[in-house]
Write a protein that binds this DNA or RNA. Structure first.
Lengths: 199, 199
DNA sequence: TAAATAATTTAACACCGTTAGACAAAATTA
DNA sequence: TAATTTTGTCTAACGGTGTTAAATTATTTA
């Protein structure tokens, strides 16, 4: 009798139901609203049942992370396979990554730890004391621009910030890679951007 | 009678005591361990007292964020003022930013939403399905390297990832700036890095 | 049908942020 | 000084969280 299989399939089914319910809640209300009881309600069970399928809440998050990586991988592969030259492929790959981040924002937040962030911090400091105010001065100098609001300045500032912030985040969440290498990457990137300012 | 002042100064004092206690707890046990009751215990009060000084927990976080921005600003200014040329200043500024991120990790996490992240996700996927596996192939091709473990490949991959991830994070947490500009920054950065591969 | 096993729920624990009400200490007023 | 008001502080509680143990119901096996 293959009822063992049937039951196993049923269990597998509620396992994905749990994941789907969790994903739905997060899409509707954000990560901070995800709770075991809410998941249970959505799949019409009681909370303790979930522990029959996942060790704990973190187990559910891990499963979702896995799904996220799978999805991201697919998108990137698809993008790559649409082009022949490596230049075009790199363009497409990172654009796919970019699109994934916004189309599947919830997954991206979970995978790479971008917080919902409550505190926006705006206009609480005088401009000349903010990172923006401080860094744009030499940028303007190099570019020969005197208007601090110039879009070109803003763009360059964000380019700097992005790469530094990106490197930092990656180093904070996954503390792999040697400090030496990262310092080198930082240095390379910064001088690379700086070079683009002078012409 | 200046007792009004004295009392006001005392209140101000416990306000910073609360902030300091919160910061200590976070340094010791991380953000997820920060609770009103723990703060209260540290300053030898009961939890409801804190609401006499801050509207709620978010108010405390906001205050800490402000302190973080102040500190970061100081560090960046200091770095800038140690150099004359804008090139050197930019180098120093972003290095100061970088150092702040790791020396004051807790502040940085709060300010820019880098999560502590529970799920590390390692070796759960075959290499060729991970972003790393997918993106390094064309990188290797362009660089004329066949060893996937080569440090130069790894470095370049992280450079790509950093800038893309940085841009994404910044766009997710502070949804300012037009999509147009950001796409342009992304495109510029990607082709910029790609150019450095071919020589 | 009776016993054993599995599925599911109820109740509880210890924590969380937050609020209302009680209480004591201090300051103000009569 | 005595009475009253204000202030500071705490206790108790509400509704929420993740999680566990025990009780209960349903299903399968003998």
């Amino acid at each position: 009798m293959g009822s063992k299989e049937r039951i196993h399939r049923l269990k597998e089914n509620t396992k994905v139901n749990i994941i789907n319910a969790a994903h739905e809640i997060v899409k509707e209300e954000g990560w901070q609203a995800l709770s075991m009881r809410k998941i249970a309600e959505k799949i019409e069970y009681t909370a303790p049942m979930i522990y029959e399928y996942y060790a704990n809440k973190e187990g559910i998050l891990l499963e979702l992370t896995k799904k996220g990586y799978l999805l991201l991988g697919e998108r990137m592969k698809e993008a790559r396979d649409s082009y022949e030259t490596p230049e075009e492929q790199l363009d497409a790959i990172w654009l796919a990554y970019w699109n994934f981040a916004f189309e599947e924002k919830e997954y991206y937040q979970l995978m790479f730890g971008v917080q919902v962030n409550c505190c926006v911090m705006e206009d609480l400091l005088p401009l000349e004391s903010t990172p923006y105010g401080i860094a744009t001065k030499p940028i303007m100098q190099l570019m020969g621009i005197s208007d601090a609001e110039d879009d070109r300045v803003c763009t360059k500032y964000y380019t700097y910030w992005s790469i530094v912030h990106g490197l930092v985040s990656i180093n904070i969440v996954r503390k792999g890679a040697s400090d030496e290498i990262n310092r080198q990457i930082l240095k390379d990137a910064i001088t690379g951007i700086t070079r683009t300012l002078k012409n």
